[in-house]
Design a protein around this nucleic acid. Structure first.
Lengths: 334, 334
DNA sequence: CTGAAAGCGCTTACAG
DNA sequence: CTGAAAGCGCTTACAG
């Protein structure tokens, strides 16, 4: 392994000079600098970033933290982040951490073990202690799609999205609506799901419609197949439903569309369906799915750029909240 | 920031003892050990992994390198890696590097800048010098879906997959086949695309069929919309085509299916289509797409597990090649 | 069983 | 403009 000392020796200077020269210090003669750079090139020298980070107290990495990265939601945000990484000319690298439920544990280690200079959380709600820990350690935290008082929050207006979706169903003349929600293992609704529920209920209320709570259905893993199962159940037990708001997203909604076809239920004639997320395949199925689009790519892109500014000191870190507006995409399913 | 010295002070021992105690050295009395751990807990001490890595010469990170991570291909492999991360109980973390074309540059820096202990490349073909560099620096390299003599190669049998696909088209009675290939900016076919092309041609040959090279079409970005464009072009200029092997994958094939519908071309009656990759939406479109499935999840999972064994010394690093077999999934499009 | 010392590869005041 | 020294937070022989 070639170190700074090897370069110094070859160039005939001290390793201090090498360090200075390489990072373009103004207090080095152009001649010595050239000599050093030549030696470095010749030896194919690359600074050991571990040593560098240790003395700087900075790792140069931005941690992206999620429960897991295997869903389209995370991927879409990741796309935005990635594109941002390459459009902003900086030396930060990104590091993915999946917590698989052990959020606080992983986050503590990231912060205290100096694994990252700042973190972006995807759909993870950190405890108050964790937020405090990061603040105390001067490690900026951006939380996307969840609540985190004391950190920077970037959220979608799920209430409004659900409201638009529901209103669209109502305006199409539907009278007996159903609601499909996703909930995790702990049997709680996450922030976005519960806001969508509220938006749904509010829209009904504002249009003077009542809601039978038995028309709420739950899924857990956001799988396509769960949509098929739910639709079957719906047909069996709640036969008069004529409109569905699938707050659990387009993947599940797609499963319902397919199951409807199997059961010869016509969409949108017999039952209207509106999904959420506007995933790529939504325009590919038959009928194409009406949905609510969220600017995930933009959110990822801006979130990352923001973090870079925070770490570079261009922007001051202070807790606040950004809300992105969703958009109704009308296609064939309602 | 609380360091090993703070713990030492509180526990009333030297920092050497703390280091030893924390990593469970046998040469520490249970009593002192307890004392140390208690102090560490009390101060919420987490070892600085930068310092640790610097002295160990190991970073504890496994680098995953790809051109970009925004496609389903990478995501599916990532899923497998992720699941492997959590099933194997080890302390490695994964770090994503997207090269955006600057492969050698990024790889050199990863290796020489000590950003990772080992790397897994996705669809990237490293130059011979890079492979040598990694070998010289004792940094294991696993290459998925590309060639890399001197490293560990994990590839899919694209020749066989294409052969199966083509044979399936032929067996369905198609006479005038078309081939859709993806090629990158540099106008070269990557390993997998060129093998698929070869498999396609071989199958035709084995069945005594000739191929008109004007029936080859190219796309570049693997977008859905490119499939629509290609299908239009096909209809316009090569009207007698009755079977398409879309080696460029299911996303593009799906675009063709949709465009066919728009143009009132019946699938599979008028034209049969077979894709590649078996992405999730392939079963959702109408008609559902016949495709070739690759065990991407398995490949990611095993690749990661393998890398861990290499880094832990459980397995010896020596260049070789693993080939995974694809599988024909018959649905409605042929 | 425990501690003082050296060292990992860098950077950053501080002299000269 | 350049170099000797100290230090970042750890680990690992080596004494005792």
């Amino acid at each position: 392994m070639v170190t700074i000392k090897d370069v110094a020796q070859l160039a005939g200077v001290s390793h201090t000079t090498v360090s200075l020269a390489i990072r373009g210090s103004k207090s080095i003669t152009p001649e010595t600098r050239e000599k050093v750079l030549k030696a470095a090139r010749q030896l194919n020298y690359h600074p050991n970033h571990l040593a560098r980070s240790l003395v700087n107290g900075k790792t140069g990495v931005i941690g992206i933290v999620a429960n897991f990265f295997s869903s389209t939601f995370e991927m879409e945000i990741l796309k935005g982040i990635e594109q941002s990484v390459h459009s902003t000319e900086t030396d930060f690298s990104i590091n993915l951490f999946s917590t698989l439920g052990k959020n606080d544990e992983v986050l503590t280690d990231i912060c205290l073990g100096r694994h990252a200079d700042g973190v972006i959380l995807l759909s993870i709600s950190p405890s108050a202690e964790i937020v405090k820990l990061f603040n105390d350690n001067n490690c900026p935290m951006i939380v996307i799609d969840e609540q985190a008082e004391g950190a920077i929050e970037i959220v979608m207006d799920n209430f409004h999205g659900a409201y638009m979706a529901t209103e669209h169903l109502i305006n199409s003349g539907r009278k007996n609506l159903a609601l499909v929600l996703g909930r995790d293992n702990q049997r709680e609704l996450g922030l976005s799901q519960s806001e969508r529920k509220n938006g749904f209920l509010q829209a009904l209320k504002d249009h003077g419609m009542s809601f039978d709570d038995r028309n709420t259905f739950y899924i857990e893993d956001y799988y396509f197949e769960e949509g098929q199962v739910v639709f079957k159940r719906m047909q069996r037990y709640r036969g008069n439903i004529d409109g569905i708001f699938c707050a659990a997203g387009d993947m599940v909604a797609s499963g319902m569309v397919l199951e409807a076809k199997t059961e010869h239920v016509r969409i949108p004639e017999d039952i209207a369906i509106i999904g959420y997320d506007d995933i790529i395949s939504s325009s590919m199925i038959d009928p194409p799915l009406t949905s609510i689009r969220q600017p995930l790519f933009q959110i990822g892109k801006n979130g990352y750029a923001r973090m870079v500014r925070l770490l570079e000191g261009t922007e001051e870190y202070k807790p606040n909240k950004f809300v992105y507006e969703p958009q109704l995409i009308v296609r064939g399913s309602v």
